[in-house]
């Protein structure tokens, strides 16, 4: 029998507009996209993406979660017009862990087709990390990158 250890989990689309999958340890994850146009009118076809487990307790490392997230985002970027903005802060440490995990996944699984632009800012007592992801064939690439840095330039500093 073929092993499924290298396969993403099966994804279900829920009525609440999230996508769910259940891991081999029985943990249900919700993956969701938010329309960034709701936050800033300059960004159409731009979304923020996140995954959340229903159970917040620590659980074993599961490579298939990464494969599932990668699979969702591969489908997302099949439409080259789609772009993604990710943001996290370090107030409670969890966001930073997410950001680092996501960056690791990006480094490991990006086949070169996705471009990433980073910025960060320190505020009174926290750091903000913001990243723009878009396909290299995105027809609005220049406009989006310009709008992204316009949004961040006064307070945030580009990360090389």
């Amino acid at each position: 029998m073929a092993s499924n250890s290298q396969l993403p989990y099966e994804i279900s689309k829920e009525e609440d507009q999230s996508y769910t999958f259940v891991t081999k340890h029985g943990i249900t994850y919700h993956a969701y996209f938010l329309d960034y146009n709701g936050y800033h009118p300059a960004f159409t076809d731009v979304y923020t993406f996140n995954i959340e487990p229903e159970d917040d307790r620590p659980h074993p490392i599961d490579k298939r979660i990464a494969l599932t997230v990668v699979h969702i985002l591969q489908m997302f970027f099949r439409r080259h017009e789609n772009a993604m903005i990710m943001i996290c802060d370090n107030l409670d440490g969890k966001e930073m862990k997410r950001e680092r995990l996501f960056s690791r996944w990006f480094a490991a699984y990006n086949d070169g087709s996705i471009r990433k632009y980073d910025a960060s800012v320190s505020s009174d007592n926290y750091m903000l990390y913001v990243s723009l992801y878009l396909h290299k064939a995105n027809p609005r690439q220049q406009d989006l990158v310009r709008a992204f840095y316009e949004l961040v330039k006064n307070e945030l500093y580009p990360i090389d």
Binding site: K13, Q17, S18, L34, G38, Y47, M75, R79, N82
Partner: peptide, 13 residues
């Protein structure tokens, strides 16, 4: 929650 906070969930895949 989305209605209360004005959050726009999307399903682009």
């Amino acid at each position: 929650l989305a209605e209360t906070r004005g959050i726009k969930f999307a399903t682009p895949v």
